[in-house]
């Protein structure tokens, strides 16, 4: 299954998630997602994926690095 098969909404997905669509385009995208469950599912997947990627690659600063950085201070 490939969503609704329209390239338009696939193209709109990333800008929509990035919050860079115009109000009018947002309305259009929302309207489409309401009418198109396959796209809606993919949209929510993308949303979760971004969050998941951010959390998955998160790594705390190694202990001791802060101290090393601090020792570079002039003051």
């Amino acid at each position: 299954m490939m969503g609704c098969g329209c390239n338009d909404c696939e193209e709109m997905m990333q800008p929509y998630l990035d919050g860079v669509l115009t109000d009018e385009q947002v309305r259009e995208a929302k309207g489409h997602l309401e009418r198109c469950p396959p796209c809606d599912k993919r949209f929510r997947f993308e949303l979760h994926l971004r969050h998941f990627v951010r959390v998955a690659v998160d790594e705390d600063m190694p202990p001791g690095l802060r101290q090393k950085l601090s020792s570079l201070r002039s003051t």
Partner: peptide
Amino acid sequence: DYYLYNRLESTIGDENPDEERVL
């Protein structure tokens, strides 16, 4: 853009899995 979703979905037996299960 849908490639990953479609590939993952195809590995799940269900016809129409939740996106969380795909993830």
